[in-house]
Design a protein around this nucleic acid. Structure first.
Lengths: 104, 104
DNA sequence: TCAGTCTATGTCGGAACTGACATATTCGCA
DNA sequence: TGCGAATATGTCAGTTCCGACATAGACTGA
């Protein structure tokens, strides 16, 4: 999956703004990554807000602690599906979710 | 994937409202399905609006016509990832996308 | 009617994603 | 400091999802 390029770089400490044109990511790819990033942040925020540990959240959504850690780290092996699932399971309201989808 | 239950039923002509408690889908599952459904509709709407054929859209996102058809049909084999990707590729604005995430 | 375009459906091999596990690291706090 | 809880990282086998292809059906205008 092409999107992973950016995520890998980000993980290596790059800033998103710079790398976009450097890698010549298409607008579509950039949008998708931004969206995911926004959701990822929302997951962590929502989880913390509800005072859930990663293990707690994992149980709620029948996943594992390591997967939650990867979600929050923006790991390339994590799909949008799973991020959204985590967001929902973390108790985020519909409003929260919608807000997370606000990318400009 | 558990979510498919509902999608299969829906495809068979069921109404979502009824089946939810019948199948005892958790709130989380229901939310996810509703979200996907909303996005799926947005894809078709956006594609038509821009007068793109399924083949056109497929080329834009380097997928295939049959995949687009499946996306729009809410096929169980289609992930949220792909739906969102299609939505973006169809030219939907950020505002459109956000609107599609408005589920209550 | 029929040719051309569009959409739907089924299938398949390969790619991507998953939960689970092991283990390392970080983080309070007594 | 050191201990327990929380989080991070790596790996892997099983599952899901993917594009591609074949083909069927639907729709439109001539």
């Amino acid at each position: 999956m092409k999107t992973n390029k950016l995520e890998r770089l980000k993980a290596a400490g790059w800033e998103v703004g710079n790398t976009e044109d450097f890698l010549q990511l298409s607008d579509e790819e950039a949008k998708l990554v931004a969206l995911k990033l926004s959701l990822v942040n929302a997951v962590k925020k929502s989880r913390i807000k509800r005072k859930l540990s990663q293990t707690d959240l994992a149980q709620r959504m029948k996943s594992s602690q390591s997967r939650i850690a990867k979600i929050e780290a923006g790991d390339p092996s994590v799909s949008l599906d799973l991020v959204v699932r985590a967001l929902i399971a973390s108790g985020a309201t519909t409003r929260d979710i919608q807000a997370a989808f606000t990318v400009q």
